[in-house]
Amino acid sequence: MSSAPHLRVAAETKQPVRLTGDHWWDLDRERHIRDRPKYCPDCASGIEEEGGIAVEYWEGERRIFHTWCGACGWAGDIVRVDRMIGHETER
């Protein structure tokens, strides 16, 4: 008998099944929350401590955190990069 989707995810990632949430995507959620920017790239204040916000959205393969710093007002997109790919322009 095949296992339920949330059990398969847990087995692949070698992590214990969490039973505290009722969603199959709990592990995914935790990873995304862990990756969010915590400090302002401009003034280094804590994003959340100062009332700011970081909202994650996707654009193709890229995960982008639209971030606003409540301390200095800096706003911009912070992109997590796993692999640098360069393109040589035509000459």
Partner: peptide
């Protein structure tokens, strides 16, 4: 905490930021 939003949700992102700015 479990949503998956994309580029087409730009307005939603802008609104959340606006609320946070005004709350501050």
């Amino acid at each position: 905490t479990a949503e998956h939003i994309g580029k087409s949700d730009a307005g939603v992102i802008m609104l959340r930021r606006m609320f946070k700015e005004q709350m501050k």
